[in-house]
């Protein structure tokens, strides 16, 4: 049998319990806040500048690293202006997922899609693999090939299982970005 405790004392003993609860809350909130990126880190993450762009870079996507939906596509500051000669293998139009570059992406040779910085079409989306897919022009036409990406390359509603020759007007998706292929 526990000793009798007066009700008056018990009434005031509820405060230490409440205080403990709020100490827990304060600690947890501070830990959560310290795990958030600082404004400086956030700025550095959103504009991965400083790295000189490879000279082959015709376009590059920069933008929200998380969703990818608000990504914008713009010419990298250091890259030379796109060659003026007409593309031999047609062009890609961006129809969703990033702000399309004027005139689309010309296909002059093989094009690599991915998150890595050495990709001519860089898509900073966590759902895009480092080297995600590639377009290879050949005598038969332009072939789209998935490079074993985790979330796949999608031709229309179908996941790409093997390389496919693109027809005029086909659209395909890498991550959240959707492209349409034009032969001319």
């Amino acid at each position: 049998m526990t000793p009798e405790v007066s009700e008056g004392l018990l009434y005031f003993l509820k405060y230490p319990l409440l205080i403990l609860l709020y100490v827990f809350l304060a600690c947890a909130l501070r830990m959560m806040a310290s795990a958030l990126p600082t404004p400086k880190e956030l700025a550095a993450r959103q504009a991965p500048a400083g790295r000189p762009a490879p000279s082959t870079l015709p376009v590059r996507a920069v933008g929200s690293p998380r969703t990818g939906t608000s990504a914008s596509l713009e010419a990298a500051p250091e890259s030379p202006p796109p060659p003026a000669r007409p593309p031999e293998w047609g062009r890609l139009e961006v129809i969703a997922g990033m702000d399309p570059p004027v005139g689309g992406i010309p296909i002059h040779g093989a094009l690599l899609f991915g998150r890595a910085s050495d990709c001519p079409v860089q898509i900073p989306d966590p759902f895009v693999s480092s080297h995600h897919a590639r377009l290879v022009p050949g005598s038969e036409g332009v072939v789209l090939e998935d490079l074993g990406s985790r979330n796949g390359t999608w031709l229309g509603p179908e996941r790409l299982e093997s390389p496919v020759r693109l027809q005029d007007g086909d659209h395909f998706a890498v991550g959240d970005v959707t492209f349409r292929y034009h032969r001319t």
Partner: peptide
């Protein structure tokens, strides 16, 4: 950090149990 949180949880549980037992005497 986790250790601190777990220690606080333990303290709340022990203090609360003592209070509840006294309140229900």
């Amino acid at each position: 950090s986790g250790l601190v949180l777990m220690a606080l949880v333990s303290a709340i549980l022990v203090l609360g149990a003592a209070l509840a037992q006294a309140g229900l005497q």
